[in-house]
Computed example of a mutant assay.
Amino acid sequence: MTATSFRARASQGATAGLLLALFLFPRVASNYWLDVFTSAFFYVILALGLNVVVGFAGLLDLGYAAFFAIGAYTTGILTTVYHVPFLLTVPAAAALAALSGVVIGAPALRLRSDYLAIVTLGFGEIIRITAKNLTLTGSASGIYGIPRPTVFGHALKTQQDFYYLLLILAIVTYLAMRRLEHSRVGRAWKYIREDEDAAAAMGIDPFRYKLLAFVVGAVVGGLAGTVFAVRMTAIAPESFGFMQSVLILLAVILGGLGRLPGVVLGAFLIVLLPEAMREFASWRYFLFGALLIAMMHFRPEGLWPAGRRKMPQSGRAALNGGDGR
Protein backbone atom coordinates (compact mmCIF):
# COMPACT_ATOMS: atom_id res chain seq x y z
CA MET A 1 0.00 0.00 0.00
CA THR A 2 1.42 3.37 -1.00
CA ALA A 3 1.54 6.33 1.35
CA THR A 4 -1.08 8.16 -0.75
CA SER A 5 -3.58 5.29 -0.63
CA PHE A 6 -2.94 4.86 3.11
CA ARG A 7 -3.71 8.53 3.73
CA ALA A 8 -6.84 8.29 1.59
CA ARG A 9 -8.11 5.28 3.53
CA ALA A 10 -7.27 6.92 6.84
CA SER A 11 -9.18 10.03 5.77
CA GLN A 12 -12.20 7.96 4.72
CA GLY A 13 -12.11 6.09 8.02
CA ALA A 14 -11.93 9.32 10.02
CA THR A 15 -14.84 10.77 8.04
CA ALA A 16 -16.96 7.67 8.59
CA GLY A 17 -16.17 7.73 12.31
CA LEU A 18 -17.08 11.41 12.57
CA LEU A 19 -20.41 10.89 10.80
CA LEU A 20 -21.22 7.92 13.04
CA ALA A 21 -20.46 10.02 16.11
CA LEU A 22 -22.71 12.83 14.86
CA PHE A 23 -25.60 10.45 14.22
CA LEU A 24 -25.22 8.92 17.69
CA PHE A 25 -24.72 12.29 19.42
CA PRO A 26 -28.43 12.86 20.29
CA ARG A 27 -28.39 9.70 22.42
CA VAL A 28 -25.94 11.22 24.89
CA ALA A 29 -26.38 14.99 24.49
CA SER A 30 -28.68 17.35 26.34
CA ASN A 31 -31.23 19.51 24.55
CA TYR A 32 -28.91 22.50 24.99
CA TRP A 33 -26.05 20.89 23.05
CA LEU A 34 -28.47 19.51 20.50
CA ASP A 35 -29.61 23.08 19.87
CA VAL A 36 -25.99 24.28 19.58
CA PHE A 37 -25.04 21.58 17.07
CA THR A 38 -28.25 22.11 15.11
CA SER A 39 -27.32 25.78 14.76
CA ALA A 40 -23.83 24.72 13.67
CA PHE A 41 -25.25 22.52 10.89
CA PHE A 42 -27.40 25.44 9.80
CA TYR A 43 -24.35 27.69 9.48
CA VAL A 44 -22.49 24.92 7.66
CA ILE A 45 -25.16 25.00 4.94
CA LEU A 46 -25.06 28.80 4.68
CA ALA A 47 -21.26 28.89 4.65
CA LEU A 48 -21.08 26.23 1.93
CA GLY A 49 -23.46 28.32 -0.17
CA LEU A 50 -21.48 31.52 0.31
CA ASN A 51 -18.24 29.64 -0.38
CA VAL A 52 -19.41 29.11 -3.96
CA VAL A 53 -19.47 32.87 -4.45
CA VAL A 54 -16.49 33.91 -2.32
CA GLY A 55 -14.29 30.83 -2.25
CA PHE A 56 -14.78 29.30 -5.69
CA ALA A 57 -15.52 32.34 -7.86
CA GLY A 58 -13.61 34.94 -5.82
CA LEU A 59 -16.49 37.43 -5.49
CA LEU A 60 -16.97 39.45 -2.30
CA ASP A 61 -20.60 39.25 -1.16
CA LEU A 62 -21.60 41.27 1.92
CA GLY A 63 -25.34 40.78 1.57
CA TYR A 64 -25.71 37.00 1.60
CA ALA A 65 -28.29 37.13 4.40
CA ALA A 66 -30.72 38.59 1.83
CA PHE A 67 -31.11 35.20 0.09
CA PHE A 68 -31.46 33.54 3.47
CA ALA A 69 -34.25 36.04 4.26
CA ILE A 70 -36.00 35.46 0.92
CA GLY A 71 -36.22 31.73 1.59
CA ALA A 72 -37.44 32.21 5.15
CA TYR A 73 -40.10 34.78 4.25
CA THR A 74 -41.31 32.74 1.27
CA THR A 75 -41.94 29.73 3.49
CA GLY A 76 -43.35 31.88 6.28
CA ILE A 77 -45.86 33.64 4.02
CA LEU A 78 -46.92 30.54 2.10
CA THR A 79 -47.46 28.43 5.22
CA THR A 80 -49.25 31.04 7.37
CA VAL A 81 -51.23 33.06 4.81
CA TYR A 82 -51.92 30.50 2.09
CA HIS A 83 -51.55 27.30 4.18
CA VAL A 84 -49.24 25.65 1.66
CA PRO A 85 -47.48 22.46 2.91
CA PHE A 86 -43.83 22.97 3.81
CA LEU A 87 -42.39 20.71 1.10
CA LEU A 88 -44.21 22.70 -1.59
CA THR A 89 -42.73 25.94 -0.30
CA VAL A 90 -39.17 24.65 -0.73
CA PRO A 91 -39.07 24.80 -4.58
CA ALA A 92 -40.88 28.13 -4.49
CA ALA A 93 -38.27 29.57 -2.11
CA ALA A 94 -35.41 28.17 -4.21
CA ALA A 95 -36.88 29.63 -7.41
CA LEU A 96 -37.44 33.04 -5.85
CA ALA A 97 -33.93 33.07 -4.40
CA ALA A 98 -32.48 32.11 -7.80
CA LEU A 99 -34.48 34.88 -9.48
CA SER A 100 -33.20 37.36 -6.91
CA GLY A 101 -29.66 36.18 -7.61
CA VAL A 102 -30.14 36.94 -11.29
CA VAL A 103 -31.75 40.32 -10.60
CA ILE A 104 -28.91 41.53 -8.37
CA GLY A 105 -26.14 39.62 -10.14
CA ALA A 106 -26.83 40.67 -13.74
CA PRO A 107 -26.03 44.37 -13.19
CA ALA A 108 -23.67 44.01 -10.20
CA LEU A 109 -21.30 41.39 -11.56
CA ARG A 110 -19.97 43.78 -14.18
CA LEU A 111 -18.30 45.50 -11.24
CA ARG A 112 -15.28 44.21 -9.36
CA SER A 113 -13.73 44.26 -5.91
CA ASP A 114 -15.03 46.90 -3.48
CA TYR A 115 -17.71 48.15 -5.87
CA LEU A 116 -19.30 44.69 -6.01
CA ALA A 117 -19.13 44.42 -2.22
CA ILE A 118 -20.95 47.76 -1.83
CA VAL A 119 -23.72 46.70 -4.22
CA THR A 120 -24.30 43.38 -2.43
CA LEU A 121 -24.29 45.18 0.91
CA GLY A 122 -26.96 47.54 -0.41
CA PHE A 123 -29.02 44.63 -1.72
CA GLY A 124 -28.98 42.97 1.69
CA GLU A 125 -30.17 46.16 3.37
CA ILE A 126 -32.90 46.68 0.75
CA ILE A 127 -34.32 43.22 1.46
CA ARG A 128 -34.21 43.76 5.23
CA ILE A 129 -35.82 47.21 5.09
CA THR A 130 -38.46 46.01 2.63
CA ALA A 131 -39.38 43.13 4.94
CA LYS A 132 -39.56 45.60 7.82
CA ASN A 133 -42.07 47.84 6.04
CA LEU A 134 -44.34 45.47 4.09
CA THR A 135 -47.61 44.35 5.62
CA LEU A 136 -47.32 40.95 3.90
CA THR A 137 -44.07 40.24 5.75
CA GLY A 138 -45.48 41.33 9.11
CA SER A 139 -43.61 44.66 9.13
CA ALA A 140 -41.23 45.08 12.08
CA SER A 141 -42.97 42.34 14.07
CA GLY A 142 -42.24 39.74 11.43
CA ILE A 143 -44.17 36.52 10.90
CA TYR A 144 -45.06 34.26 13.79
CA GLY A 145 -47.06 31.07 14.20
CA ILE A 146 -45.27 29.28 11.35
CA PRO A 147 -46.40 25.64 11.59
CA ARG A 148 -43.97 22.81 12.20
CA PRO A 149 -43.28 20.88 8.99
CA THR A 150 -44.23 17.37 8.00
CA VAL A 151 -41.58 15.63 5.91
CA PHE A 152 -42.60 12.42 4.14
CA GLY A 153 -45.37 11.79 6.67
CA HIS A 154 -43.22 12.48 9.74
CA ALA A 155 -44.05 15.60 11.77
CA LEU A 156 -40.92 17.42 12.93
CA LYS A 157 -41.52 18.65 16.45
CA THR A 158 -38.62 17.81 18.74
CA GLN A 159 -35.13 19.21 18.88
CA GLN A 160 -33.80 15.83 17.84
CA ASP A 161 -35.95 15.89 14.67
CA PHE A 162 -34.42 19.19 13.52
CA TYR A 163 -30.95 18.00 14.50
CA TYR A 164 -31.19 15.08 12.11
CA LEU A 165 -32.89 17.15 9.40
CA LEU A 166 -30.14 19.77 9.36
CA LEU A 167 -27.39 17.16 9.69
CA ILE A 168 -28.68 15.35 6.60
CA LEU A 169 -29.11 18.62 4.69
CA ALA A 170 -25.57 19.68 5.62
CA ILE A 171 -24.18 16.35 4.36
CA VAL A 172 -26.14 16.57 1.11
CA THR A 173 -25.03 20.19 0.57
CA TYR A 174 -21.41 19.27 1.22
CA LEU A 175 -21.50 16.38 -1.27
CA ALA A 176 -23.19 18.59 -3.87
CA MET A 177 -20.58 21.33 -3.42
CA ARG A 178 -17.77 18.79 -3.63
CA ARG A 179 -19.16 17.42 -6.88
CA LEU A 180 -19.57 20.94 -8.21
CA GLU A 181 -16.04 21.91 -7.19
CA HIS A 182 -14.48 19.17 -9.33
CA SER A 183 -16.79 19.73 -12.30
CA ARG A 184 -16.07 21.79 -15.39
CA VAL A 185 -18.04 24.67 -13.88
CA GLY A 186 -16.02 24.51 -10.67
CA ARG A 187 -12.75 24.65 -12.56
CA ALA A 188 -14.01 27.64 -14.55
CA TRP A 189 -14.85 29.44 -11.28
CA LYS A 190 -11.34 28.85 -9.98
CA TYR A 191 -9.77 30.14 -13.19
CA ILE A 192 -11.86 33.30 -12.92
CA ARG A 193 -10.91 33.68 -9.26
CA GLU A 194 -7.19 33.48 -10.01
CA ASP A 195 -7.17 35.71 -13.11
CA GLU A 196 -10.39 36.82 -14.77
CA ASP A 197 -8.68 38.31 -17.82
CA ALA A 198 -6.63 35.16 -18.44
CA ALA A 199 -9.77 33.04 -18.03
CA ALA A 200 -11.55 35.17 -20.64
CA ALA A 201 -8.58 34.75 -23.00
CA MET A 202 -8.96 30.97 -22.61
CA GLY A 203 -12.56 31.13 -23.84
CA ILE A 204 -14.36 31.21 -20.47
CA ASP A 205 -17.22 33.68 -20.22
CA PRO A 206 -16.56 35.36 -16.83
CA PHE A 207 -19.96 37.06 -16.59
CA ARG A 208 -21.88 33.87 -17.28
CA TYR A 209 -19.98 31.78 -14.74
CA LYS A 210 -19.99 34.49 -12.08
CA LEU A 211 -23.75 34.83 -12.48
CA LEU A 212 -24.10 31.07 -12.16
CA ALA A 213 -22.08 31.16 -8.93
CA PHE A 214 -24.34 33.89 -7.59
CA VAL A 215 -27.46 31.86 -8.44
CA VAL A 216 -26.13 28.64 -6.89
CA GLY A 217 -25.18 30.47 -3.71
CA ALA A 218 -28.59 32.17 -3.62
CA VAL A 219 -30.44 28.87 -3.95
CA VAL A 220 -28.49 27.29 -1.08
CA GLY A 221 -29.15 30.34 1.09
CA GLY A 222 -32.85 30.29 0.23
CA LEU A 223 -33.17 26.59 1.08
CA ALA A 224 -31.48 27.18 4.43
CA GLY A 225 -33.96 29.98 5.08
CA THR A 226 -36.93 27.65 4.61
CA VAL A 227 -35.65 25.35 7.36
CA PHE A 228 -34.86 28.31 9.61
CA ALA A 229 -38.45 29.56 9.33
CA VAL A 230 -40.11 26.27 10.32
CA ARG A 231 -37.57 25.52 13.02
CA MET A 232 -37.97 28.89 14.77
CA THR A 233 -41.74 29.19 13.94
CA ALA A 234 -41.21 32.98 13.89
CA ILE A 235 -39.02 35.29 11.82
CA ALA A 236 -38.27 39.00 12.00
CA PRO A 237 -36.16 41.43 9.92
CA GLU A 238 -33.50 41.65 12.66
CA SER A 239 -32.54 38.02 11.96
CA PHE A 240 -31.27 38.97 8.49
CA GLY A 241 -29.14 42.03 9.11
CA PHE A 242 -25.66 42.92 7.97
CA MET A 243 -24.02 41.18 10.94
CA GLN A 244 -25.60 37.90 9.88
CA SER A 245 -23.90 38.24 6.49
CA VAL A 246 -20.60 39.06 8.19
CA LEU A 247 -20.89 36.01 10.45
CA ILE A 248 -21.42 33.68 7.48
CA LEU A 249 -18.53 35.31 5.61
CA LEU A 250 -16.39 34.94 8.72
CA ALA A 251 -17.01 31.18 8.74
CA VAL A 252 -15.77 30.92 5.15
CA ILE A 253 -12.65 33.02 5.74
CA LEU A 254 -11.86 31.48 9.13
CA GLY A 255 -11.87 27.92 7.80
CA GLY A 256 -10.16 28.65 4.49
CA LEU A 257 -11.48 30.16 1.27
CA GLY A 258 -12.47 27.53 -1.27
CA ARG A 259 -11.64 24.62 1.04
CA LEU A 260 -14.83 22.66 1.84
CA PRO A 261 -13.61 20.92 5.03
CA GLY A 262 -12.24 24.27 6.19
CA VAL A 263 -15.60 25.98 5.59
CA VAL A 264 -17.31 23.31 7.71
CA LEU A 265 -14.72 23.82 10.46
CA GLY A 266 -15.19 27.58 10.31
CA ALA A 267 -18.97 27.27 10.62
CA PHE A 268 -18.62 25.08 13.71
CA LEU A 269 -16.12 27.44 15.29
CA ILE A 270 -18.27 30.57 14.96
CA VAL A 271 -21.05 28.71 16.79
CA LEU A 272 -19.08 26.66 19.33
CA LEU A 273 -16.45 29.21 20.42
CA PRO A 274 -18.92 31.80 21.78
CA GLU A 275 -20.78 29.00 23.56
CA ALA A 276 -17.57 27.65 25.08
CA MET A 277 -16.78 31.15 26.36
CA ARG A 278 -20.26 31.72 27.79
CA GLU A 279 -18.93 31.48 31.36
CA PHE A 280 -16.99 34.68 30.72
CA ALA A 281 -20.32 36.47 30.15
CA SER A 282 -19.75 39.93 28.66
CA TRP A 283 -16.07 39.19 27.93
CA ARG A 284 -16.72 36.26 25.64
CA TYR A 285 -17.20 38.28 22.43
CA PHE A 286 -14.10 40.32 23.23
CA LEU A 287 -12.08 37.12 23.67
CA PHE A 288 -13.62 35.64 20.54
CA GLY A 289 -12.67 38.74 18.56
CA ALA A 290 -9.13 38.68 19.97
CA LEU A 291 -8.73 35.05 18.92
CA LEU A 292 -9.93 35.90 15.42
CA ILE A 293 -7.49 38.80 15.11
CA ALA A 294 -4.64 36.57 16.25
CA MET A 295 -5.62 33.87 13.81
CA MET A 296 -5.83 36.29 10.88
CA HIS A 297 -2.36 37.63 11.81
CA PHE A 298 -0.60 34.29 12.17
CA ARG A 299 -2.62 32.25 9.65
CA PRO A 300 -4.37 34.59 7.21
CA GLU A 301 -5.08 31.80 4.70
CA GLY A 302 -7.44 30.15 7.21
CA LEU A 303 -7.25 27.21 9.56
CA TRP A 304 -7.66 24.62 6.80
CA PRO A 305 -6.52 26.29 3.58
CA ALA A 306 -6.72 24.75 0.14
CA GLY A 307 -3.51 22.98 -0.80
CA ARG A 308 -1.60 23.79 -3.94
CA ARG A 309 -0.73 21.19 -6.51
CA LYS A 310 2.97 20.41 -6.76
CA MET A 311 4.50 20.71 -10.19
CA PRO A 312 5.51 17.33 -11.60
CA GLN A 313 9.24 16.59 -11.89
CA SER A 314 9.02 16.77 -15.67
CA GLY A 315 7.53 20.24 -15.45
CA ARG A 316 10.27 21.47 -13.12
CA ALA A 317 12.87 20.02 -15.45
CA ALA A 318 11.36 21.87 -18.40
CA LEU A 319 11.40 25.17 -16.51
CA ASN A 320 15.04 24.61 -15.59
CA GLY A 321 16.20 23.97 -19.09
CA GLY A 322 15.70 20.23 -19.08
CA ASP A 323 18.36 19.33 -16.52
CA GLY A 324 15.84 18.68 -13.70
CA ARG A 325 17.72 20.88 -11.23
Rank of each mutant, 00 (worst) to 15 (best):
A267T: 00
L109R: 14
G241Q: 13
Y144R: 05
L87P: 11
R9C: 04
L254Y: 11
T173I: 08
G186W: 06
E238C: 13
E196A: 07
A3K: 10
V84L: 09
R316S: 06
F298V: 12
G101N: 04
A306H: 13
Q244D: 02
G307C: 12
A117I: 08
G258Y: 13
L169Y: 09
F214W: 10
A10V: 02
F268R: 00
G76Q: 13
F228R: 01
G307R: 10
A199P: 03
P305S: 15
A93R: 12
L272N: 02
E301G: 05
V172C: 11
D35A: 11
A294S: 15
L48R: 08
A251K: 00
L223V: 05
E279F: 15
R309P: 02
P91Y: 13
S141R: 03
V215T: 03
I129M: 07
F25A: 06
Y73I: 03
S39F: 12
W33G: 01
P300W: 13
A94D: 12
L111V: 02
I204V: 12
A306I: 12
P300Q: 10
A224N: 09
Y64D: 03
G203Y: 11
S100I: 01
F41L: 11
L20D: 02
A188D: 04
Q12I: 10
A201N: 13
V271N: 00
Y174C: 10
A199M: 14
S245M: 02
H83F: 07
G76S: 05
V172H: 15
E181R: 04
A94M: 10
T74V: 05
S245V: 00
E125S: 06
A69Y: 03
K132M: 15
T135A: 08
W283L: 09
R325E: 13
V102P: 09
T130G: 11
A170Y: 06
L136T: 01
F86K: 04
E194W: 03
G142H: 01
G101L: 02
Y164K: 10
L166V: 01
A10G: 04
G258D: 12
L273N: 00
R231L: 14
L167G: 07
L175I: 01
T74E: 09
A251Y: 06
L59E: 05
A140C: 08
F298N: 00
S245N: 01
L269W: 07
Y163T: 09
V172T: 11
L166K: 06
L24Q: 02
K190L: 08
Q159E: 07
L116P: 00
L34N: 15
A281C: 04
R128S: 03
L96G: 11
E181N: 10
L121V: 01
F68N: 00
L211Q: 10
A69H: 00
A94Q: 07
G153N: 10
G322F: 02
F280T: 08
S113H: 13
G262R: 01
I168C: 08
W189N: 11
A317L: 03
L87W: 09
P107R: 15
F240W: 09
L109T: 05
L109C: 05
A155D: 06
T38N: 15
R110P: 03
V28G: 15
I171D: 14
S314R: 05
A40D: 00
P149L: 07
V44K: 14
T74D: 11
Y43F: 08
S113N: 10
T226M: 04
A155M: 12
F25I: 06
S282A: 12
I143Y: 12
R110Y: 08
E279S: 02
T135H: 09
W283C: 02
F207E: 14
I204E: 10
Y285Q: 07
